[in-house]
Design a protein around this nucleic acid. Structure first.
Lengths: 185, 185
DNA sequence: ACGATATATATCGAACCGATATATGACGAA
DNA sequence: TTCGTCATATATCGGTTCGATATATATCGT
């Protein structure tokens, strides 16, 4: 999934600034399955503008920096549809927490516990945010958006449930190789 | 999570070639929560070698290309521990399938159905692979590895279950805006 | 002979990240 | 009053990573 397609997708719902596009990819309906940095969004928007898939207009606003508002063109809509008609590639998932969990036996127990706590909190925040988006989208005929939000809620809830039920086991593993290592040294 | 840390982590379990490191990140215990391309692994290994965190020896083998086998140094082990002692950052998750699902209403039903089928197949493959890894790891005292494999199985199973139970709804959404669009044109 | 697969190494240009910079304003704490 | 934080905004940089490609050797099937 490239950032050009993501920008087109977000703009297909309505005009937006680069900042707002980034915001959509961090909060809102898209947020749990996409991400893109400013460092990628602005160059992508520039390329899309050069290619005629997007137009941009400047808006001055008192008291704030000027806004550059991007709009998708009909050609941009066609390009988005083309991209969506490709066979979707594989999910990408990377988790620093799980790398830490894998090495729990050689890490201090407090560190592992803290990592688990952070993860629980992060999952709770995500679930809260997805539920909020679902509340706004429900009944608006936005079937696809509603479906992916329910999917996200189900998966993150399962993740949180498993973590809570099984955290004690991970904590029991934590530090279990410490004594051995110290004795060997 | 950067590729240097990932290489150190994989090498901490035993010496490996660049090819094998890539293989570990695509199959095996690590596979569902990490990924790295050859384009990233080889430069990372070179930097790790320059920095003294890893050593490399050449092995000739009849009938095959020569192997460059990398080993982690004691300094490399310390660097790995340091990295693991940092607070883990957020998960990264990107899903082209979910982008397609979000736009299901403007996509042909057959395309959406195919995308769902591919996703089911991919989830089944992942579950099968994780279960296999779990069978090999069980009882070996590799507590952290066992824990993350069980976590991965739980989450991917929940994902597959939800997909199977709710695919009909997504299929019902698919193409639902087609008639409207054609009428408007 | 060619393509696919496996074991291996390596690199390239394009894309992306994370950090940083800049601008304006509001608000709260020292 | 100043500073830090937060929010709305734009933009860019150097380093990292990706995806494609190339190379080498061997085996197998069409």
């Amino acid at each position: 999934m490239n950032v050009r397609t993501l920008c087109l997708a977000i703009l297909s719902f309505g005009d937006a600034t680069g900042y707002e596009i980034r915001k959509h990819s961090v909060e809102g309906n898209f947020s749990y399955f996409v991400d893109a940095s400013f460092g990628a969004i602005y160059p992508a928007l520039n390329r899309l503008t050069e290619d005629g898939l997007v137009t941009v207009r400047d808006e001055l606003q008192a008291g704030k920096p000027a806004r550059r508002v991007y709009s998708i063109t009909p050609e941009g809509r066609r390009a988005l549809m083309d991209a969506l008609m490709q066979e979707p590639g594989l999910d990408s998932f990377k988790s620093p927490f799980l790398l830490v969990a894998m090495f729990a036996s050689v890490l201090p127990r407090e560190h592992v516990t803290r990592a688990i706590d952070c993860r629980e909190a992060a999952l709770e925040r995500t679930l809260s945010s997805l539920s909020e988006c679902l509340g706004e989208v429900k009944g608006c005929g936005a079937g696809g958006s509603e479906w992916i939000l329910r999917y996200g809620i189900a998966v993150h809830q399962a993740s949180l449930d498993h973590l809570r039920v099984n955290r004690a086991e991970l904590e029991a593993v934590a530090g279990s190789r410490r004594v051995e290592r110290e004795a060997a040294e």
